[in-house]
Structure formats: structure tokens, C-alpha cells
């Protein structure tokens, strides 16, 4: 822009400004009034916000104080209650205390009571024991507030776990008999006589068994007797020993003899046993029934004395054997 024009414009503007000056004081009055209002408003907003927050916190604190003052136990509930408890089982119960401030804490100092101790018992610590089938109401009381819960007890389920024969082992002599008893054992530890048992002998040549459990020893050996009922089997071991061998008799040989007076004969004494065997008898007591006819010494030597008949006896404890000696007159050889 040309300097000349610029100068003209400037001088004209200055002239107008001088004729119409701006009022700084009025502008400052208006501006500073607004400014003070802005300052006041800013301070007021911040102060109001802080006061409101403080009031909210104070109200919350007062409410909290009120809650602490008035907190009461409103209810007691029993937790961890099993739906069903089998007779004989135990379970630990717990009680919770509910307070007026909405809090829930484990109840302490609880008095536990069972409504039916024949069905379920409960001790002071809340340990409940199922006794028999039925329903019992368990109560937990704290500070006069009681909570209840119902426990259903179901019967104990008993299963057959085994079969036991008595005696489990037996030793018999051949020919002897014994009766085995069968008892069923149950899961609860109880036992009961088995009544429908199927008896089987593992070796009938050693021992036989009948339907009543009567075992008959047949011959020496070992046999296993089995008894089965309801899917379970019990066994007994039967050991059969040979029968005892006993002296059944005493036999003299010869059982009869004919001698001439003056002749002698030696008798032999044999013991006979129950198993049919024989053995020479020793220590036999010899006796002649008629010493005038025939005499016998301690070795069984018989001496014919005169004609007649004499019975020679040989005795051992319990058995006696005899031999008949016929004495004929001495023949005179001419």
C-alpha cells in the first residue's frame, strides 16, 4: 500500500478514534465482573463436587455405622446336608449364621439336636450318625435362632460276601463221620446259617458228603468239601487217616494135635489184627486145661503126659487162643 494512502488512512482513523474514544474503564468493569463470576463459578463447582462426594461418603459411613449397631442374627441354616444317609453312616453337618446386614458367617456355639435319635443321632459338633431307616429333623440353635434340616436315613444294604464251613479242616479215620456247618457271611459283618447249600466232595473216594453236610471218611487221603449258596462257595479240607490196627485175636498153631504120651509139640501163638494181618505173639501166658493129660511150658512146648484131651490156652491181654491136644497112650513097640 502506498505510504501516502496509508498515512491518510491512519490520520483519518486517529481522528475518528479521538472523537470517539473507547471507554476502557467500562470495558474493564464489565469484563472483570464476568471474570469474577467465572472464578466464583469454578470454585463453586469444585467445592460443590467435593461436598457432594463427602456427603455421599458420610452417608455411606453413617449407614455402615448403623448397620454395625443393629446387626442381628436373623437365621441359621444347616449346610452340607446329605440327601440320604445310609444307616450306620456318619456325616459332618455345618451351620451358617445369617445377619441383618446381609452377611453370612459360620455359626459358632451351636446346639445340635436330633428330633428322632432312634433314626439319627447328632453330637455337639454336628456329627450326625444314621441309626436306622426313617426321617429325622436335625436342629441347630444359636443365640435363640434355630435352623432345621431333615435327614432321611435309608436301610443299610447288606450283601452276601462269603460262605464259611465249620470246621474248615478236619481229620477223620476212615469210616468216621463228621458234620460240617455252613454259615453265610454278610457285608455288615454278620453271619447266618446257610440253609440251601449244595455240597460237593472234591474226591469221593477219600470222603463223601451228603446233602446235609455229613462227611464220611472213606479211605486215607485228603478231600476238599465245597458248599455253595447264593453264588458264594466255602470249602473245608478233610484229611482221612487209616483206621487204627487192633489185636483181634490170638491163634495157636496147630489148633489141634494128637500126641502119644511122652511126646512133645511146640505150639506157635499168632496174634491176628483188625486189618487181617498176623504176627507172632510174644509174652504169651501158656496154660494147660488139664496138666495131667498135657503140660505146657512158657515157650508153648506141650508135653503129652497121659491119654486124654487137654486144652492149651495162650493168653495175652484181651485175647486168648486155644489148641486142643489129644494124648493117646504110649504105644509099646514089641
Amino acid at each position: 500500500m502506498k505510504t501516502e494512502i496509508s498515512r491518510e488512512l491512519r490520520s483519518a482513523a486517529i481522528a475518528r478514534a479521538i472523537s470517539h474514544p473507547g471507554d476502557i474503564e467500562r470495558a474493564l468493569t464489565v469484563g472483570l465482573r464476568r471474570y469474577k463470576w467465572k472464578v466464583f463459578a469454578a470454585y463453586a463447582v469444585v467445592t460443590t463436587v467435593v461436598i457432594l462426594l463427602a456427603v455421599v461418603m458420610l452417608l455411606g459411613q453413617l449407614a455402615k455405622v448403623g448397620q454395625y449397631r443393629e446387626v442381628k442374627l436373623t437365621a441359621v441354616t444347616i449346610g452340607s446336608v446329605p440327601a440320604v444317609l445310609i444307616a450306620g453312616m456318619q456325616d459332618q453337618l455345618s451351620a451358617l449364621g445369617h445377619y441383618s446386614d446381609g452377611s453370612t458367617v459360620p455359626a459358632t456355639g451351636v446346639a445340635w439336636v436330633s428330633g428322632d435319635s432312634e433314626v439319627a443321632r447328632v453330637d455337639g459338633a454336628g456329627l450326625v450318625t444314621a441309626v436306622k431307616a426313617g426321617t429325622a429333623t436335625i436342629s441347630a440353635t444359636q443365640s435363640g435362632v434355630t435352623g432345621t434340616s431333615t435327614i432321611t436315613v435309608t436301610p443299610r444294604i447288606v450283601t452276601v460276601t462269603g460262605l464259611v464251613l465249620e470246621p474248615a479242616e478236619a481229620s477223620l479215620q476212615a469210616g468216621d463221620t463228621t458234620r460240617l456247618a455252613a454259615r453265610l457271611t454278610y457285608s455288615d459283618g454278620s453271619t447266618a446259617p446257610a440253609t440251601a447249600v449244595a455240597w460237593v466232595s472234591g474226591d469221593s473216594e477219600v470222603a463223601r458228603v451228603d446233602d446235609t453236610g455229613l462227611v464220611t471218611a472213606v479211605q486215607a487221603g485228603t478231600a476238599t468239601i465245597s458248599a455253595t449258596q447264593s453264588g458264594v462257595t466255602g470249602t473245608a479240607t478233610i484229611t482221612v487217616t487209616p483206621p487204627d490196627v487192633v489185636v483181634t485175636g490170638l491163634v495157636l498153631e496147630p489148633a489141634a494135635a494128637s500126641l502119644q504120651a511122652g511126646e512133645t509139640i511146640g505150639l506157635a501163638a499168632w496174634l491176628t489184627y483188625s486189618d487181617g494181618s498176623t504176627a507172632p505173639a510174644t509174652g504169651v501166658a501158656w496154660v494147660s486145661g488139664d496138666s495131667k493129660v498135657a503140660r505146657v511150658d512158657g515157650t508153648g512146648l506141650v508135653t503129652a503126659v497121659k491119654a486124654g484131651t487137654a486144652t492149651i490156652s495162650a493168653t495175652q491181654p484181651g485175647v486168648t487162643g486155644t489148641s486142643t491136644i489129644t494124648v493117646t497112650p504110649e504105644q509099646v513097640i514089641e
Binding site: L9, R10, A12, A13, I14, R16, A17, S19, H20, P21, G22, D23, I24, R26, A27, L28, V30, G31, L32, R34, Y35, K38
Partner: peptide
């Protein structure tokens, strides 16, 4: 006064500018 032809208006507008500036 260079921007505004009317001196009275110029004075008023300038006062308004001062007031707003001070605010």
C-alpha cells in the same frame, strides 16, 4: 477505526473486545 467506518461502532466493538479479553 480502519476496519470499521463508523467511529461509534468501532468504539463499542473495541470496548466489547476489551471486556471479553479481561474476562
Amino acid at each position: 477505526n480502519l476496519i470499521c467506518d463508523e467511529p461509534a461502532t468501532a468504539a463499542i466493538l473495541l470496548e466489547a473486545a476489551w471486556a471479553k479479553t479481561s474476562a
